[in-house]
């Protein structure tokens, strides 16, 4: 399970590398993610890959990222505790306001019972907490046919 992820509601091998204490000597590709400050620093460098993954911690400012999203191959939202809900707003803003179309990965304390909420906020890739069963967790996506925010705004 430690090497599996859910991607677009399918269980597949993990593909991304999360370098959460910085890039150091690692080879950076479009499938590695680095902290936001390192990402900004890298943008100005000539040897930087054209796109790379960026990590958003709950306290990071997502608004500053908007103008640089063309360099982000994917965004990795860190959930240090599943009860910290800031990542949901980050996902929502990335998708609906900034039009980000790359993968949004949730990693850390990611549990089956929050998958649907994350999915509906715009997350499409999940590294679940150690010990969670990704295959069993897939049922979460099909539990509710509709969303309760129906009928508020004219369609």
């Amino acid at each position: 399970m430690g090497n599996r992820m859910i991607f677009d509601q399918v269980v597949v091998p993990r593909r991304y590398t999360i370098l959460d204490d910085g890039p150091h000597e690692s080879v950076l590709t479009s499938e590695t993610a680095i902290p936001l400050a390192d990402f900004y620093e890298l943008l100005g460098r000539e040897d930087a890959p054209s796109t790379i993954g960026v990590i958003l911690e709950p306290g990071d400012d997502v608004t500053g990222l908007e103008s640089h999203l063309d360099r982000a191959s994917f965004v990795a939202l860190h959930f240090p505790k599943f009860t910290d809900g800031r990542g949901y707003s980050h996902a929502r803003l990335l998708r609906t306001r900034y039009g980000f179309e790359g993968a949004i990965l949730a990693y850390g304390d990611v549990l089956r019972d929050q998958l649907l909420l994350m999915h509906r906020s715009g997350v499409n890739a999940f590294y679940m907490r150690e010990g969670q069963d990704e295959v069993a967790a897939l049922e979460a996506f099909n539990r509710f046919e509709e969303q309760y925010q129906f009928g508020l705004y004219p369609t």
């Binding site: 809900g85 949901y88 929502r92 906020s121 309760y148 129906f150 009928g151 508020l152």
Partner: peptide, 17 residues
């Protein structure tokens, strides 16, 4: 009632501070 429908199971706001 409209606010109830808005806030019920709203995906973004299940884990407020």
């Amino acid at each position: 009632e409209m606010l109830r429908q808005y806030k019920e199971l709203h995906p973004e706001f299940a884990f407020l501070p």
